[in-house]
Simulated scan of single mutants.
Amino acid sequence: MPRNRYYTGPARSNFDGLRFFSPGQPLPDRGFGDLWKWHRSGERAKWPRHVDVTPAIPPERTDAPRLTMVGHASVLIQVAGLNILTDPVWSDRASPVRFAGPKRVTAPGVRFDDLPKIDAVLLSHNHYDHLDLATLRRLHAAHAPLMIMPLGTDATVRRAVRGARVAVADWREAIALGEGAQVTLTPANHWSSRGLRDRRMALWSGHWIDTPKGSIWFAGDTGYGDGAIFHDIRARHGAPDVALIPIGAYAPTWFMANQHVGPEEAVQIFKDVGTRQALGIHWGTFQLTDEPREEPVELLDRALAAEGIDPDRFRAFAPGDVHASA
């Protein structure tokens, strides 16, 4: 009988006693037959081996929101005197091994040694392009941040990062950050695994950051589904001042639609949550799927134009880019 190696607890609205799931949404599970069909298609675009990046040097602290793109889903969020990292990956590969797997095309948009003192790390789930143990060890040694993550994800972190300060929560539960700020985990339509037999045994999430200086929502990885989770987020939290919304890793859509959004669906999420400003993440750093590297940027511009939305309100966030609010 299968055993959950990450989490033990009673069944709940998003957990059946063995595996987590998104209630009312299609499962993203794919078998080896689907994987073989995808990789036989031969439609994978060729990416450049390297794209130049000019790294940013962030300040030590700021009150007004300032976000700096590191790459993929890694963003440095500075707000209300706090320094927060989302899904930090400074490694060269998004992989369980150093010699194979998706390799960085862009250097980090902030050099590790240029990071300010990091107070908190927000982890969305345990996939290798989001939970990088080598980076977490470096962060713990240099900064000892509080690491906030969904149920079961902590099992991987605790084993690998001895002495780490870890806080764990379910969807819609909040964790205090201090300085009048807190993080609430938000639902996402995704999945988790670190190996072949642990699918959906740890939870996945987004993170809503509430501070006296504004609100920032990091969506994590998600498919769109029927859109219910995004309407619920708006109803519970209001409209965020800034939203970090994924726009890449969507092709082929028949394989990816239940776990990732493309630019058109990202624009729909932008509308659903009512954010004033969105930044497109999860593109252009690691080639995980078939689309050309620049296609998410082009399709985002088209989708915004079709909806009559000012492109300055939702722009693709590239490594080294900075978004600062007054």
Rank of each mutant, 00 (worst) to 15 (best):
P187T: 14
D226W: 04
K271M: 10
F270T: 01
L203W: 08
H260R: 14
D210T: 13
A257E: 12
P246M: 12
G223S: 09
N258I: 05
G206C: 12
R200H: 14
P212G: 15
L279I: 01
A219L: 10
D198L: 06
H190D: 12
V273C: 04
M256N: 09
Q277C: 00
H237V: 00
A278M: 02
W204T: 13
A235V: 01
D198W: 00
R197Q: 12
R234N: 08
P252K: 11
A188L: 02
T275E: 09
F255T: 05
A257K: 14
K213A: 15
G274Q: 07
D241Y: 00
I209R: 07
K213I: 01
A278R: 06
G227S: 08
N258H: 13
H260E: 11
T211M: 12
I281Q: 07
R199G: 08
A257D: 09
T253L: 10
G220S: 07
H260Y: 10
D210C: 05
L196A: 15
G262S: 07
T186C: 12
G238H: 04
I247T: 03
A228G: 12
A228W: 07
V267Q: 07
D226Y: 02
T275L: 03
G248W: 10
E264A: 14
A228C: 03
V267I: 07
G206H: 11
W217Q: 04
I245P: 04
F218W: 04
R236N: 09
A239T: 12
Q268F: 02
H190R: 03
G206W: 13
A235F: 00
L244D: 08
S205V: 07
A249L: 04
D272R: 03
L203A: 15
L196H: 10
A188H: 08
E265V: 02
R194E: 15
H260V: 10
S215Q: 13
Y250L: 02
G225H: 09
G262I: 05
Q259H: 01
R194W: 00
A251E: 14
A249R: 03
P212T: 14
P263L: 13
T253I: 08
A243S: 15
F255K: 10
W217D: 04
W208N: 05
W254H: 10
T222G: 06
M256F: 01
V267K: 07
G262C: 09
I247M: 10
F230W: 15
A243D: 09
F230T: 00
G274K: 05
R200P: 00
R200M: 13
S215D: 09
S192W: 09
